[in-house]
Design a protein around this nucleic acid. Structure first.
Ligand code: FES
Ligand code: FES
Lengths: 134, 134
DNA sequence: CTATATGATACTATATCAGTATCATTTTGT
DNA sequence: ACAAAATGATACTGATATAGTATCATATAG
């Protein structure tokens, strides 16, 4: 199992690069160079980040993307959720269906605690902490 | 992302049921009843557990499966690894390829720590702790 | 008013997950 | 010996998630 997939990976690299540039707006071309991934794929990723409110975009000549917030307020956990969904499932963390006895299930509580801790740890990593020029 | 998939789920239920029976050998038919999953699928799961050294099997009439170890020495993390592979990847936890600068990568270390903690937490949950008759 | 940039969306390919089917081999009871 | 009852090994199929591409619409600067 991968905790972090390709889209999240590229997203974080792009965000860290934008963080390096201290709030500047960059074009997809700039980011393609920095991240090292195909242009159409990165475009899709950036659009998702924009929809999630992590990036702000501007269309037209001279357009591009900039961070919607300072890099110390963008968390790895949040970025991960955009591309891979939340860690928690609604009812039962353990498989799709319910256990034979949901009410008395001890594992459910334990797994919930573990996933909660994991989520907090992922949220403790900010984009700022991943910038080059720290 | 699911921390635990279906195979691991069913495997744990089967193991917990075997634990309830205190080292008894049970047939697939017994376990199908206890776990509530199709017979061929459970068979595949049990065979993997046998290959992993978590179950012992006996063929032929009156055969079946029993725990290869006491339930307090079978860990959720180990079972999970049988079906979903290890948490850690060799080089870089972050995506498939290396970062632009592997040596100076701060994220790699952080993710390694997080994954390490997660693995320890999963290993702290034993089959015994999930048995009905605790 | 056009070149340049992103927005929206649909499509394709590949990998992983979930589940089924089949035949071989071992063991036990008669 | 032999048939019934069990698991072993393995190949196959369908569904879902991941990874990536392609196309046309829309906004903006000059
Ligand atoms: S109710 Fe889902 S693991 Fe127990
Ligand atoms: S080297 Fe892989 S995340 Fe940095």
């Amino acid at each position: 199992m991968r905790l972090i997939n390709r889209e999240t990976d590229y997203a974080v690299r792009a965000l860290a690069h934008l963080g390096d540039k201290a709030g500047e707006r960059l074009s997809v071309s700039d980011l393609v160079r920095a991240v090292g991934v195909s242009r159409p794929f990165l475009r899709k990723i950036l659009q998702k980040l924009e929809q999630a409110g992590i990036l702000e975009s501007r269309k037209g000549r001279g357009g591009g993307f900039k961070l919607a917030r300072p890099p110390e307020r963008i968390m790895l956990g949040e970025v991960r959720t955009v591309f891979q969904g939340p860690l928690k499932t609604e009812n039962c963390l353990f498989g799709v269906r319910l256990c034979y006895d949901y009410k008395t299930c001890r594992l459910r509580r334990k797994m919930r605690d573990i996933e909660g801790r994991l989520a907090r740890e992922l949220d403790a990593i900010t984009i700022q902490s991943l910038q080059k020029d720290l």
